[in-house]
């Protein structure tokens, strides 16, 4: 095969193993061919980069979406944790709420996988706190989230600190933490879930006025929890 044909075979992805070796050999020996080929490779790369930018943007928005969604699973599952932890106070009698638990309980194992999804160093540390959280070590988790928040100021850390406190029966402390962050002003993704847990916590304290106040906010949010909050409000009536 002549040089031209080898190069064409290379760029059209039809080169055999033997021809690939031949081309390597020619490139080593023939400086003129090497120069030409080098320029062609650079051109291929430039064209590729031009064509890539759309895909790169696609992956970026995919990552952003994924991140949001993974948080949703986490706090939907966190809802389960607290429903289990403090829900028995709310729903001791009616059998329908038993079914509700069963419905909620299923997504929980997903979370273990999703919340270990991390690539940034700081998220790696957060993964440790989430591990405590997922294994039910809520008091330790609360401490870990608090320390992380002091270092990085991420809203979700306050949220999980609060939820961890509620789950470990430190209801007053949990409320205090959850009320310490301006969820709505900052348009946090955790605004609705935080209000949801505040609502639940106040129910536990039998402060139904405050509970209704927070749950009403949840019903007005565009949140998967809105309907659940409506149901809960109906049961409070």
């Amino acid at each position: 095969m002549d040089k031209e044909a080898l190069i064409e075979a290379y760029f059209s992805n039809r080169i055999s193993n033997v021809e690939f070796e031949q081309l390597q050999q020619l490139l080593k020996e023939d400086a003129a061919l090497r120069e030409r080929f080098y320029n062609e490779l650079e051109l291929k790369e430039a064209i590729a980069r031009e064509e890539h930018s759309d895909l790169k943007n696609r992956f970026r928005s995919l990552e952003a979406k994924q991140k949001k969604r993974s948080f949703w699973y986490v706090y939907a599952a966190a809802a389960v944790v607290v429903l289990i932890a403090i829900g028995s106070l709310l729903y001791e009698e009616p059998p329908t709420t038993q079914t509700l638990y069963a419905d909620y309980f299923e997504p929980y194992p997903n979370v273990v996988h999703l919340s270990s999804r991390s690539q940034l160093a700081e998220e790696d540390v957060a993964a440790g706190a989430f591990e405590l959280y997922e294994t039910g070590q809520y008091t330790k988790a609360a401490t870990a989230f608090k320390a992380l928040y002091q270092a990085t100021s991420k809203d979700y850390l306050v949220f999980y600190q609060g939820v961890s406190l509620l789950a470990s029966n430190q209801t007053h402390e949990g409320i205090e933490v959850l009320e310490s962050y301006p969820w709505e002003v900052t348009q946090s993704d955790f605004a609705a879930p935080a209000n949801w847990y505040l609502g639940l916590a106040y129910i536990k304290l039998e402060n139904l006025a405050q509970a209704t106040h927070y749950l009403n906010k949840v019903t007005q949010a565009k949140s998967p929890l809105s309907q659940t909050a409506r149901n809960l409000l109906e049961q409070l009536d």
Partner: peptide
């Protein structure tokens, strides 16, 4: 030629 891998 260079990106879509078509022959001449």
């Amino acid at each position: 030629y260079y990106y879509r891998g078509m022959t001449l």
